[in-house]
């Protein structure tokens, strides 16, 4: 068991161990969606919400069902099932009860199932042996960190549309280079906290 304070984990997940910039998780939507600030923000909110909920559910599934039964090797299947089911459920609930939220968030939800960040957080939770509270804060922190990175990236990309650059670098290429510079910038936080 690690003895980290939940708030430390939250902070670390946003800044020093940003899920996107230091673990490379959730890259696919990062490249595809980060064209506009508004859409990125919507996607970020959806990811944060799903992350916070699924990490806790997966914690319960893993520690209260799989470990006692010594079936922890099938956690991959179960985690992915939990995530897919949860996303489907949220989609249905939002569509039924929150019409306006559904129009703004709806299109992002199906994409989330295949977002590696969601599964990644659950797997990290197992590897780093977090307890329930730590898991919750880690989930929320990762979501915020991801949102933060993607919104900043969207802002930069909007400006970059008007910058001259080599033809081949436009689009995906420059997004990666920018992400690299962002990752370097986030390195500046790394002296603050050290989680593995």
């Amino acid at each position: 068991m690690t003895e980290l304070h939940p708030l430390t984990i939250l902070f670390a997940a946003v800044f020093t161990n940003n899920i996107l910039l230091s673990n490379f998780l959730g890259m696919c939507p990062f490249v595809a969606v980060s064209g506009e600030i508004k859409t990125s923000l919507g996607m970020g909110q959806a990811v944060t919400f799903v992350l916070a909920c699924t990490s806790v559910i997966n914690y319960a599934v893993y520690h209260w069902i799989l470990v006692p039964l010594e079936l922890d090797f099938i956690r991959f299947i179960l985690f992915i099932l939990v995530i897919a089911t949860f996303v489907q459920l949220v989609e249905m609930i939002i569509g039924r009860f929150f019409k306006e939220l559904s129009t703004s968030l709806g299109i992002f939800l199906p994409l989330i199932t295949v977002n590696c960040a969601i599964l990644g957080v659950s797997l990290f939770m197992v590897i780093r042996e977090y307890n329930l509270i730590q898991t919750l804060f880690y989930g929320i922190g990762s979501g915020i960190g991801w949102t933060f990175a993607i919104v900043v990236m969207a802002g930069i990309r909007q400006k970059m549309k008007f910058s001259p650059m080599p033809e081949g670098l436009k689009g995906v290429g420059i997004t990666f280079i920018t992400a690299g510079i962002m990752a370097l910038a986030f390195m500046a936080f790394s002296g603050l906290i050290k989680i593995q």
Binding site: N23, E167, V172, G173, L184
Partner: peptide, 22 residues
Amino acid sequence: SIPAGAFFMIGILVWIATDYNM
């Protein structure tokens, strides 16, 4: 060896590939 290096490398690779394709 840090994450940033990976981003730079793939960025450059994508650049080369796109240029080649063009």
